[in-house]
Each structure stands twice: as structure tokens, then as C-alpha cells.
């Protein structure tokens, strides 16, 4: 009986450790290698953009509504420096209004892809993504309503 309880306890401890590890891995910024670096650079050239910051947010305003809303809200609150590239063809007026408010923020460089040239490049950005271009090998993460604050807020 004692053996049984101790083994239950030890397995509970293992589960707890596993849960802790899981939580750590969930909260840490986990960016994956971005294999479309060259295409991204060609895209910047096509829209004639030079980046001011090492963190870049590709924000197709006509994509996943909840993700876009959250990213726009978090950018409004954040004091971190980001280059933000807006694209999208059919945008809801509400989102465009929220996006326009970001122009006043000095910590953001806003770039507008007026002709939605992003659609002609392989960028793997069908919803908002954040790119880290500080190293030779770029890395990225898809932004969702759940993880957006983690990447954008200070």
C-alpha cells in the first residue's frame, strides 16, 4: 500500500514537473526559422521599404479577424519598436480606423503595401506574423489572439 501511494506521489511530481516545463515553453517566445527570407527581401524591394527595426510585423488587414484586432490593440499599447507592414485588399473600415491610429505612435514604423504586392511573394503570412530580422537567419512566429501580447507588449 505504501509503495502504491509513493509511486502515485512520484508520478504526480513527474506530471507537475512536466506541466511546469510545458508552461515555460508556452510562455517563452518561441520563434521558428523563417525559410522565406529571400522572398521577404525581394518584397521589401518591391514596395520600396527600408526597415527601421529588427522586429517586423506583417499585418494583412483582410485576414483572420480576431488575430488582426488583437495585434492592432497590442500595438496601440506597446512601447517597443516595430516595423509594421499593412497589406490587404478588402478591409473593414473599423480595422482601417484602428490601423490609422498607429500612425501617431513614434515607436512604430508604418509601411503600407498599397497594391497588396504581398500576395505575389511567398511570405507565409496569411494571418499576422512577427519576424525577427536581427540575425542572418530570420525567425518568425504566427500571431494569434492568445500569443500576440507575449510578442508585442513590453
Amino acid at each position: 500500500m505504501t509503495m502504491k501511494w509513493s509511486s502515485v506521489f512520484s508520478s504526480f511530481r513527474i506530471i507537475k514537473v512536466a506541466l511546469l516545463l510545458l508552461l515555460v515553453s508556452c510562455t517563452g517566445s518561441k520563434m521558428e526559422p523563417y525559410v522565406y527570407g529571400q522572398e521577404f527581401e525581394a518584397y521589401l524591394e518591391a514596395i520600396d521599404a527600408k526597415l527601421d527595426f529588427e522586429k517586423v510585423i506583417l499585418l494583412p488587414l483582410d485576414s483572420c479577424g480576431l488575430c488582426v484586432e488583437q495585434v492592432l490593440e497590442d500595438l496601440q499599447k506597446s512601447n517597443q519598436g516595430f516595423s509594421v507592414i499593412f497589406s490587404g485588399e478588402k478591409n473593414s473600415p473599423d480595422r482601417v480606423e484602428k490601423a490609422k491610429k498607429l500612425f501617431q505612435k513614434e515607436n512604430l514604423q508604418i509601411i503600407i503595401d498599397e497594391n497588396s504586392k504581398s500576395k505575389s511573394f511567398d511570405l507565409n503570412a496569411f494571418s499576422p506574423i512577427i519576424l525577427d530580422v536581427s540575425k542572418k537567419e530570420y525567425s518568425y512566429a504566427s500571431l494569434s489572439p492568445q500569443n500576440s501580447p507575449e510578442y508585442i507588449l513590453d
Binding site: 525559410v35 522565406y36 511567398d122 507565409n124
Partner: peptide, 8 residues
């Protein structure tokens, strides 16, 4: 494959 590969 990632989403970009599928979309293409």
C-alpha cells in the same frame, strides 16, 4: 508543408 506551400 507549411501554409504557403499549400496555397501555391
Amino acid at each position: 508543408a507549411d501554409l504557403q506551400q499549400f496555397v501555391n
